[in-house]
C-alpha cells in the first residue's frame, strides 16, 4: 500500500468526471424528466376531461334517444287512431251507398210494375173487346153498335 502521485492523477479524473456530470449530464436529464413529468400530468388531466365529456355526451345521447322513442310511440298511436277512423268512414260510406242503390232499385221495380200494369190493362181491354166483339159479331150488327163500342173503349 504505497501512496504516491497516482493519487493526484486520480483526483484530477474524479474532478473532471464530477464537472462533466454537473455541467453536461445532470441539468439536461433533470430538465427532460421534469418536462416529462409535466406532460404526463397534463395528459392525465386531459384524459380525465375527456372522460367527463364522454359521460356527458352519453347522457345527451340517451336523452335524445328517449325523446325519439316517445315521439315514435306518439306517431304510432296517432296513425292507429287515424286508421280506425278511415275504416269507420269507409264503412259508413259503403252503408250509405248500399242504401242508395237499394232505393234506386226499389224505385225502378215500382216503375216497372206500373208499366207492366198499364200494359196488362191495355191487353186485358183488348182481350175484353176482342171477346165482346166475337160475341157481338154474332148477334149485333157492327155498324149499329159501333158507336157504343167506341164509347166503351174510351171508358176502359
Amino acid at each position: 500500500m504505497n501512496i504516491n502521485a497516482t493519487l493526484l492523477a486520480q483526483a484530477l479524473w474524479f474532478g473532471f468526471f464530477i464537472w462533466i456530470t454537473m455541467k453536461y449530464i445532470w441539468p439536461h436529464l433533470q430538465r427532460a424528466m421534469a418536462e416529462r413529468q409535466k406532460q404526463i400530468a397534463e395528459g392525465l388531466a386531459a384524459a380525465e376531461r375527456g372522460k367527463q365529456e364522454l359521460a356527458s355526451a352519453e347522457r345527451r345521447a340517451e336523452e335524445a334517444l328517449n325523446e325519439a322513442r316517445a315521439r315514435a310511440a306518439e306517431i304510432i298511436s296517432q296513425a292507429e287512431k287515424r286508421a280506425t277512423q278511415i275504416v269507420e268512414e269507409a264503412k259508413a260510406a259503403a252503408k250509405a251507398e248500399g242504401e242508395r242503390m237499394l232505393a234506386a232499385a226499389k224505385a225502378e221495380v215500382a216503375q216497372e210494375v206500373s208499366r207492366v200494369k198499364e200494359d196488362l190493362r191495355e191487353q186485358v181491354a183488348a182481350l175484353a173487346i176482342a171477346g165482346a166483339e166475337k160475341i157481338l159479331r154474332r148477334e149485333i150488327d157492327a155498324k149499329v153498335h159501333a158507336q157504343m163500342l167506341a164509347q166503351l173503349k174510351q171508358e176502359l
Binding site: 497516482t6 486520480q10 479524473w13 456530470t21 453536461y24 449530464i25 436529464l29 427532460a32 418536462e35
Partner: peptide, 26 residues
C-alpha cells in the same frame, strides 16, 4: 489504475453525456 479508471469514466460519462444531450421529454 489511471488508465482503467480513466477509460471507464470517459466511456460511461461521455455515453451519459450523449444520452443527456439527446434527452427527450417524450
Amino acid at each position: 489504475t489511471i488508465l482503467v479508471s480513466g477509460v471507464l469514466g470517459l466511456a460511461i460519462f461521455f455515453a451519459m453525456m450523449a444520452a443527456a444531450r439527446k434527452a427527450t421529454s417524450g
